[in-house]
Amino acid sequence: MKKDNNQLVMTLLKGRTFIVLILLVIFFSFASSSFLSLNTLTMVAKHVALYGILALGMTFVIITGGIDLSVGSVVGLVGMLAGGLIQEGFTFGDKTLYFTVPAIIVLMLCVGCLIGWINGIIITKLNVAAFITTLGTMYICRGLANLRSNGATFASIGGFEGLGNVGLKALGADWLGIPAGVYVFAILSFMAAILLNKTPTGWHFLAVGGNEKSAKLSGIKSDQVKIWAYIISGFCAAWIGLINTAQLSAAHPASGDGWEMNAIAATVLGGTSMSGGSGTIIGTIVGAFVIGVINDGMTMCGVSEFWQKIIRGAVIILAVIIDQTQRNLQAKMALQARNESK
């Protein structure tokens, strides 16, 4: 009888984030009559995509036992670089280069990967703690973003037909009624899930995070695995830099400030353990939705920004407490099962 109860609790705990999401949606649809409208849901989805894509990258980093604080600044830097390339081109000597939007996207993704790679190299080869390394690159990237335009905004990112650089705004537009960012989120989520669950590399992420020493003894190049996690994180942040710029129709150097925290929160809510070794993509997606729904729902209900922060903080701590409870219960049940089999 007791065992059945435990199992029920376990099932509930395992699906807890999803249950919380459903409860939140129900709650907000009662609290604000317009919450369940198509417009609102589109808006929520647009915001969720922003946190979600960052959280996908963050999931890989946290699974390997690290943390990436630089993603918010990478969003700002990539936005400014992309905005600058469209508005002013890249002047080299007496020539000015204007790239097409696809080329700009490719270049910006490379910038994101490069920053991730630098993070990874410093953390693994130079043995600097991930928290410190990415705190450093966070400041550096934010500084570079401001330096690009001396703190000003690139306001005309529409581009010109004649220069062949029109089209970035499409990333911020709706396609068939759904924001472009949501498509990117869906595609990247799918790719991330495949990578984590269906490829040897995915196992290596989990192995390095779970027991780095054993991973090394198994012949896994744990440094390389970690570096890849940061590259993925930088790649995802670059996408957000582009999408956010497109959505705003302008590149602000302060864009993405503090977003790394939303990404970490979504990842942790999604059940990824901060100590590394476990986590799922689907969990992170649900976590991103929870963060998005809480943020937009509270705004729609007229909850003040100050209270929103308090509630968000409480939700994150609560999630981790539940996580711990689940672990303890799981250990207890495993022990029980062992005793029974004896």
Binding site: P200, W203, A207, N211, S214, A215, S218, G219, G277
Partner: peptide, 16 residues
């Protein structure tokens, strides 16, 4: 023991 406590038996056996 140099196993991955967080992974399944078959994942451990075939790791790398």
């Amino acid at each position: 023991l140099s196993l991955f406590q967080n992974l399944t038996v078959y994942q451990n056996i075939f790791m790398n």
